[in-house]
Simulated assay, not measured.
Amino acid sequence: MIGFPSQRQVYFSPLNFMLDIIAVTLIFSIPLSAILGSIYIKSKKLNLQKAESKRLLELLEENKQIKSRLESLETIIAGANLEMLTSGSLEDSEQVRAQIQAMKKQSRFRLED
C-alpha cells in the first residue's frame, strides 16, 4: 500500500530525536545570537558616547581655565609694557624685567624667552 508507512517502518530512535533537537536548537540560536550581539554592540556604543561626552566637558572646562590664565598673562604683560612706556626711566624697565623673570620662575608653566 502506497501512502502511510506501516507500523514496522515507524519506530522511535534516540539518535533521530537528538538530531531533531540539535537542528531546532541551531535554527533558533542563530537569530538569538544576532539579537544579543546587537544589544551588546549598542550598549558598548552608548558607554563610549557617555565617556566621550564626559571627556569633552572636561576639555571644555580646561580650555576655559587656560583662556583665563592667558588673559591674566596678557594683562600682566600689557601692564608691564605700559609701565615701561610711561615711565621712561631705565631703572623702572629693569625693575619690570626682574619682576617678569621672577614670575617665570614661579609659574606652573615654563615660559620660553
Rank of each mutant, 00 (worst) to 15 (best):
Met84His: 03
Ala34Tyr: 05
Lys44Cys: 03
Tyr40Val: 04
Ile76Tyr: 06
Gln7Thr: 14
Arg55Glu: 07
Lys42Glu: 08
Val10Asp: 01
Leu57Gln: 12
Val24Leu: 09
Asn81Glu: 13
Ile27Pro: 00
Ile76Ser: 07
Val24Gln: 11
Glu62Gly: 02
Gly37Pro: 02
Glu71His: 09
Ile30Asn: 05
Ser53Gly: 08
Ile77Ser: 04
Gly37Glu: 01
Glu61Phe: 03
Glu58Gln: 12
Lys64Phe: 15
Leu32Cys: 12
Ile35Gln: 00
Val24Tyr: 04
Phe28Lys: 05
Gln65Thr: 13
Tyr11Arg: 15
Arg55Lys: 06
Leu82Glu: 08
Lys44Gly: 01
Thr75Arg: 15
Leu36Arg: 03
Ser29Cys: 12
Gly3Ile: 10
Gln7Arg: 15
Leu46Tyr: 13
Lys45Ala: 14
Pro14Ala: 09
Ala34Ile: 15
Ser68Thr: 14
Glu58Lys: 03
Glu71Tyr: 05
Ser43Met: 06
Leu15Trp: 11
Asn81Phe: 02
Phe4Pro: 03
Ile27Asp: 05
Lys44Ile: 02
Glu58Ile: 10
Leu19Arg: 10
Ile27Ala: 09
Glu61Trp: 02
Leu60Asn: 09
Ser68Trp: 09
Lys54Phe: 03
Arg69Cys: 08
Asn47Asp: 11
Ala80Gly: 00
Thr75Tyr: 14
Leu82Trp: 11
Leu59Arg: 09
Ser13Asn: 04
Pro14Val: 14
Asp20Met: 03
Asn81Gly: 02
Leu60Pro: 00
Leu73Met: 05
Phe12Arg: 11
Leu59Phe: 06
Leu60Arg: 08
Pro5Ser: 04
Ala34Val: 14
Gln7Trp: 05
Leu48Phe: 08
Lys45Leu: 07
Arg8Cys: 06
Phe4Asn: 13
Ser53Trp: 11
Ser33Leu: 14
Ile77Leu: 07
Ile66His: 11
Leu19Asn: 15
Lys42Tyr: 10
Leu36Glu: 03
Tyr40Glu: 12
Leu59Asp: 06
Leu48Tyr: 08
Lys45Tyr: 09
Ala51Thr: 05
Ser38Ala: 11
Phe12Ile: 10
Leu15Gly: 06
Ile21Gly: 01
Glu62Met: 10
Thr25Arg: 02
Phe28Ser: 05
Phe12Thr: 13
Tyr11Glu: 15
Ser72Ala: 11
Ser29Trp: 00
Glu83Cys: 01
Lys64Arg: 10
Ile76Ala: 04
Ile41Gly: 06
